[in-house]
Design a protein around this nucleic acid. Structure first.
Lengths: 200, 200
DNA sequence: GTCTATAGATTGATAGAC
DNA sequence: GTCTATCAATCTATAGAC
């Protein structure tokens, strides 16, 4: 696991380029230049470009699951864990400002292209959603957990898109604060038995 | 104005395809097929593909301004006008579900490509932001008007991204309801002199 | 103003030597 | 497993006839 082979090197280079330039805008030449192999050598490891995309997504799914496990291990409370999620916007701001959210932008591109791999890429979103959903359930919001996780997913996506377009870090910090405040009012409501499913 | 020339036909076809497939993924052949001209004929009207993009963005800016004027004319109150903005998500759901938000997805793509036209495309966002800002000022929220318009911009962007990825119309309707409720609580607070700049 | 023909580069993909 | 050589298609862009 994690062994450095040509195959994994291709996947990692493709992962980076698909994120930074987009899937369509990335060519075999671009990847070959990074991995230092010839273009012809690709086809020993992958039959088509789509197969590389498939491997990249699968790899991202594994990495994402590892990330979520880390958050599970390090976050003491569900509130703290969700806060961790919200704070990716700040922690990864350098990348997000330049290339947007890796999950959101990939899905958007594949939806537009009606690409067969879009359902696969959607699983990245679903992973976060399921994890968030579980955290909200732990906060005692069983009924609204799905809506709440979708809501938070959308909030973070929107902030990434708008902040990246305007290149506005101050806005990100402000919105992260708003989401954390919202979360706190939420966790408090949970511990006091109050209901707060509506607006935020 | 609005005269049907080859030039305007190219712009309209390019506009549609840049939205539906993305800028990079659209070729001259694709546009030529719609406009029914030869590929060589493009260069009588535009020197480069980037010039077509520039013309498309300029055209979108004009159309957007017209849309905002319509909302100004038809909406009796700032609250009603903002509601109009929020409801594009439902009104244009067919397109948004298939291709995302035309403003957000174009900006995201051009940011990734570090394209020289990105600042031009950003003006589309700025148009909506300025207009929203003005509406919030009319609601008596002078100090927070910029933050509020950016916040609403991000909310709608996030909903478009996530709903398009999941192809979930129900989620859109739910989030539109939440945003409208938030707006109402806002307008009420304004008329009763209360402050509500924080969380939503 | 529109066309055909074509340049020159690049694309994804293949074949076969080593 | 990696290479070179190459294919056919496509790309943006140009030149020049009509």
């Amino acid at each position: 696991m994690g062994k450095i082979t040509t195959r994994t090197a291709i996947i990692e280079a493709a992962d980076r380029l698909f994120y930074q330039r987009g899937f369509e805008a990335t060519s075999f030449s671009d990847i070959a230049e990074i991995v230092k192999i010839s273009r012809g050598n690709f086809y020993h490891h992958f039959k088509t470009k789509d197969e590389i995309l498939d491997a990249v997504i699968s790899n991202r799914l594994v990495m994402t699951q590892q990330l979520l496990h880390t958050w599970d291990a390090e976050g003491a409370t569900p509130e703290e864990r969700i806060r961790r999620f919200i704070h990716i916007l700040i922690a990864n701001w350098d990348k997000i400002s330049a290339f947007g959210c890796p999950v959101g932008t990939l899905n958007t591109e594949l939806v537009k292209l009606e690409h067969a791999e879009q359902p696969h890429a959607l699983k990245l979103f679903s992973l976060f959603r399921s994890w968030l959903c579980h955290q909200f359930e732990l906060l005692g919001h069983d009924a609204a957990a799905v809506e709440l996780s979708m809501h938070l997913l959308a909030r973070t996506q929107g902030v990434a898109t708008v902040a990246s377009a305007f290149n506005d870090e101050k806005f990100v910090r402000h919105e992260v604060q708003l989401m954390c405040d919202w979360l706190t009012s939420f966790a408090d409501a949970a511990s006091s038995g109050e209901k707060n499913v509506g607006n935020h």
